[in-house]
């Protein structure tokens, strides 16, 4: 049985999603590989100046399906917004592969709180200690894969690490204390699953689904639909069990990696 786990989804979008799924007779299936190929176009009549182009996947080795897709410059980056709301103004260092094209959206998210953007491409990871020596950096936003190297480079610092995972990436076991939070992005910069403070502090890895999408869950599989219909019923490559429980943050659903 398939259940909708986003009760707030507008009916017409669900109908659209259903029709789309019936039409093609199958769901988009991206269980293989680390790229999560999506493509969508600008809405008709869109003002080019309000959009930035971001990569539609995580791994540039996936050349046939990789592309740049338009995202509104002011599209929220809810985990950064929530983090800054909680900790107030602070320096946040972003470590992002250049080809992800996230700089402008990262900048926009930080400017909402009056925080200067500071970014280092992974190729320049060695310069991170020098930045820490000059700025009171409290938080590092980084792809999960650079976490071990960053911890080696910053042995005496203990910043918060907000780590980005692609849909296929395996999360790590959380360390107690909540200094590492994990978020699964659909495409770089588009948060699908995330950890609130409570979930980040738990020893087992659980995620909340983003309120911005329509979620369906069936047999340990998650399907995600964009209310703006940029993608419909995409199946996430990993398996999740679903638990209904009220978290300290007020959210009522937790998704945990199915074993």
């Amino acid at each position: 049985m398939r259940m909708y786990i986003s009760p707030r989804a507008p009916k017409e979008v669900l109908d659209y999603a259903q029709a789309e799924a019936n039409d093609s007779g199958r769901h988009a299936n991206h269980a293989e590989g680390s790229c999560f190929p999506l493509s969508w176009n600008l809405p008709p009549g869109a003002d080019l100046g309000e959009y930035e182009w971001v990569l539609n996947g995580f791994d540039t080795k996936d050349l046939p399906s990789i592309n740049l897709v338009p995202v509104r410059r002011d599209e929220p980056w809810e985990t950064i917004d929530a983090h800054l709301n909680r900790f107030g103004a602070e320096y946040l260092l972003g470590i992002m592969p250049t080809l992800w094209q996230l700089e402008v959206r990262f900048h926009a998210a930080l400017r909402r709180s009056g925080i200067p953007v500071m970014m280092v491409p992974p190729i320049n990871l060695a310069s991170v200690p020098s930045l820490f020596a000059q700025f009171p950096i409290h938080t590092v936003l980084t792809p999960l894969r650079y976490l071990p190297e960053l911890r080696t480079l910053l042995p005496s610092r203990d910043p918060h690490y907000m780590t980005i995972l692609g849909p296929s990436d395996a999360p790590i076991e959380c360390s107690p204390g909540g200094k590492v939070s994990q978020e699964v992005h659909l495409v770089p910069g588009m948060v699908a699953l995330f950890q609130c403070e409570t979930l980040a502090a738990r020893p087992t890895t659980g995620f909340h689904p983003s309120d911005r999408f329509i979620w369906e869950w069936e047999n340990d599989r998650l399907y995600v639909t964009d209310p703006a219909a940029r993608f419909t019923r995409l199946m996430l490559p990993r398996h999740y069990t679903m638990r209904e429980e009220t978290c300290d943050c007020g959210r009522t659903l937790t998704l945990t990696e199915a074993v």
């Binding site: 103004a89 900048h107 400017r111 009056g114 925080i115 200067p116 953007v117 500071m118 280092v120 491409p121 190729i123 320049n124 060695a126 310069s127 200690p129 020098s130 930045l131 700025f135």
Partner: peptide, 14 residues
């Protein structure tokens, strides 16, 4: 708060 962005030079070397 008015700083928009921090640029660094010689980014490839520590």
């Amino acid at each position: 708060q008015r700083i928009d962005e921090v640029w660094s030079t010689s980014g490839t070397t520590a």
